[in-house]
Design a protein around this nucleic acid. Structure first.
Lengths: 119, 119
DNA sequence: TTGACATATAATCATTTGCTTATATTATAA
DNA sequence: TTATAATATAAGCAAATGATTATATGTCAA
């Protein structure tokens, strides 16, 4: 077991605080399945679009996620290159996959898949 | 690699929020080295005793730590039997040991060791 | 252009948080 | 008993948080 205790406590605490919000923790868990765009999160969470946007901003400012604009959409993904990613990953490894939520989206035709649009 | 994704997201988030405070995260990390009493925490953190007490209470209410009274002292320890302990442990495994802080205490004669007192 | 859709930002507000000081409780020792 | 040490609780307060509504920005398509 290779446990690298590399994340200083001063940096770890703010990350855990971010993940300590149910919405953001679920977002991160969803991103373990791959990138998602804002409108998907808006569909999944029973919450206003600005609220979603603000949560994503916090995660981005902390380096937890990356954003990429593709046309009208902005896609978010886990920032696996971040020095703090090992901490994020080890947390997410302890909680259940949220992939059902994405499957529900697909079944309702609300999943945004870039290659489908771009063609 | 045996990752048990057993901690529901509703229970994980509040624990992460608790550990998202630098003082509490450091407390938990210290407890990885063994039990500590309140006065040791009070010595370590530059903070009032009631503040220490309130942090410990939150950790206790969440089931993260256990308390045992021995004479005047109250000792705290990690609650390894808690269903959420795997999450706590995997977080603490990512951050550096805080044992230096305890060694400093010993060097200053501020470490409280029960067997030394009881005799 | 213009209109519609996707997203971000600003302003506001109620709630939560983490600290402080003051005081209560509990246990030991003189 | 009474004093003292260790800890907990109460009350108060400033700052942070997470939501909302309203508005701005950016992209695409007609």
């Amino acid at each position: 077991m290779n446990t690298m205790k590399d994340v200083p406590i001063d940096k770890a605490a703010p990350i855990l605080k971010l993940l300590g919000d149910k919405t953001r923790l679920t977002m991160a868990a969803l991103l373990m399945e791959g990138e998602c765009c804002v409108c998907e999160f808006t569909e999944i969470f029973n919450m206003s679009q600005p609220s979603i946007s603000q949560h994503l901003r916090k995660l981005r400012d902390a380096g937890v996620v990356l954003e990429t604009r593709r046309g009208q959409w902005v896609f978010y993904s886990l920032n696996t290159d971040n020095e703090l990613y090992p901490l994020v990953e080890s947390v997410l490894n302890q909680i259940p996959s949220q992939k059902e939520k994405l499957e529900d989206l697909e079944n309702n035709g609300h999943r945004v898949v870039w290659c489908d649009i771009k063609r």
